Simulated assay, not measured.
Amino acid sequence: MDQFDVKLLQALQSNGRLSNFELADVVGLSASQCSRRRAALEDTGAIASYHAHLDRELLGLGIVVFVQVTLATHSPDNSRRFLKLIESLEEVQEAYALTGEADYLIKVTITDLKALSRLLNEVFLPHDSVAHVRSSIVLDRLKQTSQLPLGHLVPAEARTAERSGSRRRQGKAAAGRDHRRRAARP
């Protein structure tokens, strides 16, 4: 993977609908080269899929909750039963197995508190694999991104060259402003 592939991935993370012509402008390659590189990145799985990002609030899903779950017993069979439960719930957006106090952290998106109460009290708590449930309702989202940090894929010398090129462009722009100000003085 080279710096062109990284630029292509960064551009597609920002806007997955970019055409190969638009990518060519961003990446600095021809449209046909961008097309071949995109196809290669898709074939290797580096680009796993493309998605439409939906507005949850506009669609009536006003509450995000993080649910910590502790299993009743720690056995492969119990873990499979819990996984089957999680996979069956459309409200579950993400689920993580954890180290520490809780066994799982579940991100749930749901319509309202009544629906949350039903999910916790009628689905999670009575399930035979679950011993303990603790929920935290999100008050405010400070940051959300699906974009992965890709800076580690760019060689250090390319990052240094890009930063110094950016500084030179900034310096030239500042010098141009100073020159225009001096020329405008009476």
Rank of each mutant, 00 (worst) to 15 (best):
residue 73 T to N: 11
residue 122 E to M: 07
residue 138 V to P: 04
residue 21 F to D: 12
residue 177 R to W: 12
residue 129 S to A: 05
residue 158 A to F: 08
residue 161 A to Y: 09
residue 12 L to K: 11
residue 67 V to M: 05
residue 128 D to F: 08
residue 130 V to G: 06
residue 172 K to N: 11
residue 156 A to M: 12
residue 16 G to N: 14
residue 15 N to F: 10
residue 148 L to V: 12
residue 111 T to S: 05
residue 171 G to F: 10
residue 109 T to M: 14
residue 20 N to P: 05
residue 111 T to H: 11
residue 115 A to E: 00
residue 14 S to M: 12
residue 37 R to A: 12
residue 125 L to I: 02
residue 155 P to F: 10
residue 67 V to D: 05
residue 177 R to P: 04
residue 137 I to H: 15
residue 110 I to D: 01
residue 98 L to C: 13
residue 15 N to A: 15
residue 37 R to E: 13
residue 92 V to G: 00
residue 20 N to W: 14
residue 158 A to P: 01
residue 143 K to M: 12
residue 29 L to T: 12
residue 72 A to W: 15
residue 21 F to W: 08
residue 60 G to H: 04
residue 133 V to W: 08
residue 126 P to Y: 15
residue 22 E to Q: 09
residue 79 S to I: 03
residue 126 P to I: 09
residue 56 R to Y: 04
residue 138 V to R: 07
residue 44 T to R: 05
residue 96 Y to V: 07
residue 41 L to F: 08
residue 91 E to C: 06
residue 27 V to H: 12
residue 168 R to W: 09
residue 92 V to H: 03
residue 55 D to M: 02
residue 54 L to H: 14
residue 144 Q to A: 07
residue 169 R to K: 15
residue 44 T to K: 07
residue 29 L to E: 13
residue 18 L to D: 06
residue 53 H to F: 01
residue 89 L to R: 08
residue 111 T to D: 05
residue 35 S to L: 12
residue 173 A to L: 15
residue 35 S to P: 07
residue 133 V to F: 00
residue 84 K to W: 07
residue 44 T to H: 09
residue 82 F to L: 12
residue 28 G to C: 08
residue 28 G to V: 03
residue 57 E to L: 10
residue 108 V to D: 08
residue 118 R to P: 00
residue 186 P to N: 13
residue 65 V to H: 01
residue 139 L to Y: 09
residue 1 M to I: 09
residue 150 L to P: 03
residue 71 L to I: 14
residue 31 A to Y: 06
residue 86 I to K: 02
residue 103 D to N: 13
residue 163 R to N: 07
residue 158 A to G: 03
residue 23 L to M: 09
residue 150 L to T: 02
residue 48 A to G: 05
residue 44 T to V: 15
residue 152 H to C: 13
residue 94 E to S: 14
residue 52 A to H: 12
residue 179 H to T: 10
residue 183 A to G: 00
residue 28 G to N: 13
residue 28 G to F: 01
residue 3 Q to N: 15
residue 19 S to P: 09
residue 177 R to Q: 10
residue 56 R to M: 11
residue 16 G to Y: 01
residue 115 A to I: 00
residue 70 T to L: 12
residue 39 A to W: 02
residue 49 S to K: 04
residue 131 A to Y: 11
residue 99 T to W: 13
residue 114 K to H: 10
residue 89 L to C: 06
residue 48 A to H: 12
residue 32 S to Y: 15
residue 14 S to Q: 05
residue 183 A to D: 06
residue 63 I to F: 05
residue 186 P to W: 10
residue 102 A to C: 09
residue 103 D to C: 03
residue 78 N to S: 14
residue 124 F to A: 00
residue 120 L to W: 03
residue 11 A to I: 12
